[in-house]
């Protein structure tokens, strides 16, 4: 698993539940408390170990943790670069959903060795999307669910987004956009402010 994803998971656990809790999770997962480097690649098992340890230490279901991770990646100040890069995907949430299939390609354009699972988005009705996420890493669709919810908020859209289980070898996520212009949303300027 790419270090960026592991580092995201580490950041989510450490910043949501505190560094001490992260140290306990790291301990239980048999990794150093310094955790992951974003530019390195790790064995997939390490990610599972950290997740299993987090489930035990925090007493929360894995699915809940993964959805919260997806939300964290978009909404936390630390991960602002992720939010910004995602916002390049569309002018509004509907536009963003229509370019969601490009997400792995966009990720690879930014980080050539970052492979995200294949995503196939079908517009099943006006403003209703069925997203299929083909990943060897089970739970990617749950991360995506949390991420899409946070992106809808970010665009100021009102949307119902649900993880619908697995079907046909893919995790299924349903997205129903009720109102694209529901709230103000968050500011996005094409040009990045100097603070990195």
């Amino acid at each position: 698993m790419h270090g960026l994803i592991n580092k995201g998971l580490q950041g989510f656990l450490a910043e949501t539940y505190g560094r001490q809790t992260w140290s306990r999770i790291a301990d239980r997962a048999n990794i150093a408390p310094e955790g992951f480097e974003a530019l390195l690649t790790y064995d997939a098992q390490v990610t599972h170990d950290v997740l299993d340890a987090a489930v035990e230490v925090l007493g929360k279901p894995r699915a809940v943790l993964l959805e919260d991770l997806g939300t964290y990646l978009v909404s936390h100040p630390t991960t602002e670069p992720v939010r910004r890069l995602l916002r390049f995907g569309g002018l509004d949430f509907s536009d963003f959903m229509n370019s969601l299939d490009e997400l792995p390609g966009r990720a690879r354009l930014a980080v050539p060795d970052l492979w995200l699972p294949d995503i196939q988005t079908r517009e099943v009705a006006p403003d209703a999307f069925a997203v299929a996420c083909y990943s060897e890493f089970r739970g990617f669709g749950q991360i995506l669910t949390g991420l899409l919810r946070a992106m809808a908020d970010d665009y100021g859209a009102l949307a119902f987004i649900e993880w619908e289980g697995e079907r046909g070898g893919a995790e299924q996520v349903s997205v129903r956009l009720l109102e694209g212009d529901y709230s103000e949303g968050r500011q996005f300027d094409l040009s990045r402010k100097q603070a990195v």
């Binding site: 480097e37 974003a38 530019l39 670069p81 910004r84 890069l85 390049f88 966009r106 354009l109 930014a110 980080v111 094409l190 040009s191 990045r192 990195v196």
Partner: peptide, 23 residues
């Protein structure tokens, strides 16, 4: 827009690389 995306992604990756080298 893709070019702006790439420029920003590149800057973010460089910043991370610099942090890694620092560590």
């Amino acid at each position: 827009i893709e070019m702006l995306y790439l420029a920003e992604a590149n800057a973010a990756a460089m910043a991370e690389a610099h942090r890694l080298i620092g560590r």
